[in-house]
Every structure is written in structure tokens, then in C-alpha cells.
Design a protein around this nucleic acid. Structure first.
Ligand SMILES: [Mn+2]
Ligand SMILES: [Mn+2]
Ligand SMILES: [Zn+2]
Ligand SMILES: [Zn+2]
Lengths: 152, 152
DNA sequence: TAGCGTAATGAGAACCGCTTGCAACACAAA
DNA sequence: TTTGTGTTGCAAGCGGTTCTCATTACGCTA
């Protein structure tokens, strides 16, 4: 008789990515990626926010490990790292439907909206090409004040 | 007879801007702005770089004063502050011929090229408008690898 | 399923860019 | 010159991130 635990379940893309590189799956790594997958795309969290969200829901992962894991997840292209300025870098689930979006940030309250724009993508491509650079990524940050912060 | 020192020379825009705000002109402030004016626009210096350039040319200005002065010059719109990522913010002379340019940065050696693109400016305007935000500024940073860093 | 080699973690120190508190200093108005 | 207050230099402090190192634990192998 085959016990339930002996079923060989498909390793997740995360797990197989790790394995193929001599790295290991750990509960901490699972928790960090799951957090992003549960809250979905369009949310931009700082390392501290990831830490406190996990802590609040009873999971204990040290801040050092969170930083290490975020770096790893960015390198593995599960997450995207954003430099929106003001209080630390932020991370978001890399959504394959909206890979190249940009950000509109309220400098007062931090509210962040996303938008897509092909001209911006093309502008980045064109600039890199003109100077003979190999393009990696281009990011447009629009700093502004949101309606709520405007009238008060 | 009028002695040479009694000629009242026109105060610079910098000096009159300061005066009109109850602030004072100081040798330190002159030195920092002069450095930027001498090297011209299109050069992006970190606070540390400003400090070492002044130190090398025999001028002694403390790093704290340099940070304070850079902040002041940004507020007075003589300088522009850039967040190109990697090792501290950078400052450049605000050139009135190229006020709204963008940056192409080599992530290996730091080489930075400037380019202008109206579609990008319009994309920022449009995004702010769509969400009812009041636009402050928008900056496109293109991260790439320069030709020199590519072949080695 | 126990043993083992090595990757990963947690805790805290260190680091980096930047800001701030404070006493000494120096512009500029009278 | 005197005086008031803005500015400076120094050193301590701070927030975000990385590093060091002893301990833990993943997962391969027998
Ligand atoms: Mn986003
Ligand atoms: Mn520039
Ligand atoms: Zn707001
Ligand atoms: Zn380069």
C-alpha cells in the first residue's frame, strides 16, 4: 500500500529552479514567495513590510533571511525590485501580463499606481541603441501628489 | 574719490535668492555652486564626489555642509537631484536648455548618458492626469551595459 | 532511515549614505 | 564696533541593508 506521503508531487518552478542550482528549498523561502503570491501583483512591499506581515501571521523569519530571500527571488525573476525612493526599495510579484509597467507615486502618502506605456519602453530601447548600450531595463517613476493629499 | 571697493556689484541670482529669504552668502556655498558651474552641465556628482573635488583643489568644506548646501541648491532650483541608484544620489547643474532629460546608466562602470524624449514627458503627464494626481516630476532611468563594459 | 556534507538561518555587528545636535564662528545690520 | 542670528564643523545618530559566524537542517547516499 502506498502512503499519501509517498506520492511524488511535481516540484514548483521555484523549487526546481533552486534545485538546478544546488540551492535548497526551505520553509522561510516558501513563506516569503507565498506571501507575494497570496497578496497578488500590484502591491509593492518593503523588506520591513514583508517581515512584519509574516510576523503578524505567526511566521518567524529573520529580517536578514528576508533580505537574502528577496535578493534571491529577484535573481530568479519571481520578484521585481523597485526603487521608488523614500524609505527603502520595494518588491512586487513579477506579473507576466504586465511585465513592463511604470509607477505613479504620491510623495506625501506613498500611494502608488501602475500604468503601462509603450512609448516609454521604446524610448528606453532607442536610447540604449543610440549609444550602443545593451538594455537591461528601464523604469519611469512619476512623482506627484494624489487627490486625497491635495485637499488637506 | 570712489575707491574700487565701494562699487556695488550686482548680487548674483544665488546671492539675492539667499538674501530675500533671510539666508546668507558664505564661502562654502559659493564654492559648491561654483564647482558645478565650472564643470558644466551633464555631469552627475555625488555628495562625496563634491567633497573630494573641493578637498583636492585645496578648499576645505565639511561633508555635512556639502549635504546641507546641496539640499539648499536643489530647493533653490540651481541643482537637480537624481536617484540613479548605486551608491548615493547625484546632483547636476539644472540646465535651462535641457531641463527634462533622462538618463542611460551603465550598471558596470557608472557611465551615464543623457537623452531627451517628449513622449516620456507626455506619458508622465498623462499618467498623473488619469489618476487625478498633481504632477511634480517624472524621471526615466534606463539601466544598461555600455560598449566598453560589454567586451571584457 | 541514519549519517553526512554543505547550504541556509538567526542574531547581532558592521556598513553606507545621510541627517542632526550642539558649541564655536562669522555675516551683516545698526 | 557691537550684537543677533544664520552657518559651520564635528561627532553622534539613524534607517536601510549586508556581513560574520556559530548553529541548524536539507537532501543525497548507503
Ligand atoms: Mn508595480
Ligand atoms: Mn543629467
Ligand atoms: Zn497621497
Ligand atoms: Zn560601462
Amino acid at each position: 500500500m502506498i502512503s499519501p506521503s509517498s506520492y511524488r508531487t511535481h516540484p514548483s518552478p521555484f523549487e526546481s529552479g533552486l534545485r538546478s542550482d544546488g540551492k535548497r528549498m526551505t520553509p522561510q523561502r516558501k513563506k516569503v514567495l507565498s506571501l507575494f503570491e497570496e497578496i497578488g501583483s500590484g502591491i509593492h512591499l518593503s523588506a520591513e513590510e514583508v517581515h512584519s506581515k509574516l510576523t503578524i501571521s505567526g511566521e518567524k523569519v529573520s529580517l536578514a533571511t528576508i533580505y537574502r530571500t528577496l535578493r534571491l527571488l529577484v535573481k530568479m525573476t519571481f520578484l521585481n525590485e523597485l526603487d521608488l525612493s523614500e524609505g527603502g526599495n520595494r518588491f512586487e510579484l513579477l506579473s507576466h501580463d504586465h511585465p513592463d509597467h511604470h509607477h505613479l507615486i504620491c510623495i506625501r502618502c506613498g500611494r502608488t499606481e501602475e500604468f503601462e506605456n509603450n512609448e516609454v519602453i521604446n524610448a528606453g530601447k532607442a536610447a540604449a541603441e543610440n549609444f550602443g548600450f545593451k538594455l537591461l531595463e528601464s523604469s519611469l517613476n512619476v512623482r506627484a501628489v494624489c487627490p486625497m493629499c491635495l485637499n488637506k
